[in-house]
Design a protein around this nucleic acid. Sequence first.
DNA 1: GCATGATCATGC
DNA 2: GCATGATCATGC
Length: 446
Amino acid sequence: MEASSMAEELPYDKTSPDSILNHARKLTYRSLSDVVELPPSADKNNRGDLGALVERYFFRYEPNSKHEPDFPEAGVELKTTGVIPSREGRYKAKERLVLTMINFNHIVEETWLTSNLLHKCRLMLILFYLYQKDVPVYRRIFVLEPLLFSFPNMDLIQIQRDWEFIQRKVKSGKAHELSEGDTFFLGACRKGAGGPNEKLVSQPFSEIGAKSRAFSLKQSYLDQIIGNHASGASILGNAGSMDIESATKRRFEPFIGNSVEELAIKLRLPVSNTFGKRHHRTIAEQILLAGESSVLELGKASIELKTIRLNQRGAPRESMSFPGFSFLEILNQEWEDSKFFERIERKFLFVVFAPDQGGVERLSKVGYWNMPYADRLEAEHVWNETKRRLRDGVLPLPKESESEVAHVRPKAANAADKAPTPSGVMLTKQAFWLNRQYIAKVVANL
DNA sequence: GCATGATCATGC
DNA sequence: GCATGATCATGC
């Protein structure tokens, strides 16, 4: 009796997305505890789960089946996600948005259209709260209007591709090899306890246990959603849309074979700095950014743009550097928390320049790549070895000749630009690099 | 010709 | 002023 009368008292129509959205607006610029009184029994200690508190005490219903959206009659899935200030006083995502767990045994039986992901997350109500570390979740302020979000048609092509890529990997018995760099917008992110005690889960076509993973919207994609939402931009339909790989290919096609000089003229780049270190990168950026917006979606994916210049023998002239790392910080990190891991797990876009017969450097080819599983394990080994040597005060750090994949090398203003090591010795600042010969093989197979 | 150490040039 | 992507310089 009481339950049914409570249901009738709901201050919104649970069958209507718009009504749910309107109700959610009451939270804007307020925190959950500003709007509803949380009983002492509420589990306020649950670190991340503001969503559960909002569902129970603001929308006043109990979370139901994991396979249905939170509001099944309206087909709306509720998400709460943290934002942090960006430059220019706007907001950006604090992290990726986790959508739903990937069940490796089920996904192989699905198609995109019948997928649990699409069924559950086709329409999402996203609430954005200001992330503040020391403020309890129920006191965090919802700093943006709530957003009723469905994937723009323009993006759906890529999202579906991403989903199918992940499914294909599971079908091939490679769930344990999944990586964020496999995909563009939709990621297969790690989910659940990590570390040495992590429980691996089963997959249908291999005996090898895989890390537990969830579908997520990549942080960079979420940033775009937030940007469009905050600026009031509408969602574009686009009949001529393509997935990112095709769009990129088409974008670069007219420039393939052009000399560096011709490219500078075509792209109206100042001729003065033709020999600057940034020149080839500027060319790549201009090709991506100029003209119509079809490759602007690149900004929605965390793509690592790298220019590669080959020598006469077809090998890269240089190894590939990554940001410098702290000798002290690395001791407190695990591999998967490290910056180097985050970088090499990304999707790379290689823009390759090569000299022709006459020695004239030309744009040669362009391609996406991400690091295969076995090589990630090798990079992990190099990273762990670096950590061990720093801890034990053993030099030198892993050299290029010690691994097929990665090494450590100086990266500093000059040799006197040093930082402290755990053993107290000052050492010229260093970075992780991917080996020149390793990149050579990658480029050859691009 | 390559590995290794060192440094440059630019953007933020 | 510094981090970053990129390149130079040397010695074997």
